[in-house]
Lab assay of single mutants.
Amino acid sequence: HERALMVNRLQKLTRMLRVHPDPKWKQEQQELIKRLK
Rank of each mutant, 00 (worst) to 15 (best):
L13W: 00
W25A: 06
H1T: 12
V7D: 03
L32Q: 00
L32W: 02
K26G: 03
L13Y: 00
L5H: 15
W25S: 03
E2Q: 09
L10S: 00
L13G: 00
L10E: 01
D22G: 03
L17T: 01
Q30L: 13
Q29C: 14
K37Q: 15
Q30G: 05
H1P: 10
R18C: 15
R3Y: 14
K37W: 10
Q30M: 11
K24G: 07
R9G: 04
K34E: 10
R9V: 05
R3P: 02
V7G: 04
W25F: 11
K37D: 07
L13N: 00
Q29A: 14
R9Y: 09
V19I: 12
R18Q: 12
R18A: 11
Q27D: 07
P23E: 06
V19D: 13
K12F: 15
L36C: 00
K26P: 02
R15H: 13
L5G: 12
V7N: 05
Q30Y: 07
I33M: 04
K12A: 12
Q27P: 00
K26D: 03
M16Y: 04
Q11N: 08
L13A: 01
K24A: 10
H1E: 12
E28N: 01
K37G: 11
K37L: 13
Q27S: 08
R15D: 13
R15W: 06
L13D: 01
K12R: 09
Q29V: 14
R35F: 09
E2Y: 08
V19M: 10
Q27F: 11
D22A: 02
Q11D: 09
R18W: 03
Q27L: 14
M16W: 08
L17R: 01
L10R: 00
L5T: 10
E31H: 04
H20F: 13
N8H: 12
H20S: 10
P21V: 07
M6S: 04
L17K: 01
R15G: 05
L17D: 02
A4T: 13
T14I: 10
H20T: 08
I33T: 03
K24C: 06
L36E: 00
M16G: 02
D22W: 09
L36S: 01
A4G: 09
L5I: 13
E31M: 11
K12Y: 15
L13C: 02
P21E: 09
L17S: 02
Q27I: 10
K24R: 11
R15P: 01
R9H: 04
K24T: 11
R9Q: 09
L5P: 03
E28K: 01
K12P: 00
R3I: 15
R3H: 11
L32M: 02
R9T: 03
T14D: 06
P21G: 06
K26I: 13
L17A: 02
Q30H: 07
K37Y: 14
V19L: 13
L13P: 00
Q27R: 10
M16Q: 04
I33Y: 05
V19K: 13
L10Y: 03
K26Q: 08
L10D: 02
L36F: 03
I33L: 10
Q27K: 12
R35W: 12
R18H: 07
H20P: 00
R3F: 14
M6E: 04
Q27N: 10
R35M: 11
D22Y: 08
H1I: 12
L36M: 04
L5K: 15
V19Q: 09
M6K: 03
R9W: 12
K37F: 14
N8K: 15
V7H: 09
Q11W: 11
K37E: 08
Q11G: 06
D22E: 05
T14K: 10
E31G: 03
E31S: 07
K26E: 10
P23D: 05
P23S: 05
R3V: 11
L10G: 00
L32T: 01
I33S: 03
P21C: 06
I33N: 03
P23F: 03
E2R: 06
K26W: 07
K12H: 12
R35L: 14
R35Y: 09
E31D: 12
L17E: 02
P21W: 15
P23T: 04
P21N: 13
D22S: 08
E28L: 05
R18V: 05
N8S: 13
V19E: 12
M6G: 03
M6D: 07
K26F: 13
H1F: 14
M16I: 05
R18S: 12
R18G: 06
H20G: 02
H1S: 13
L32N: 00
I33R: 06
A4V: 11
V19R: 11
E2F: 08
R3K: 10
Q11M: 13
V7T: 03
W25V: 12
Q27A: 14
D22I: 04
L32C: 00
R35Q: 10
P21T: 07
E31A: 08
R18L: 10
T14N: 12
L32G: 01
T14G: 07
R9A: 04
R9M: 10
K12M: 13
Q29T: 07
L17M: 04
K34I: 10
E2A: 11
N8Y: 09
E2L: 13
H20M: 08
K24E: 08
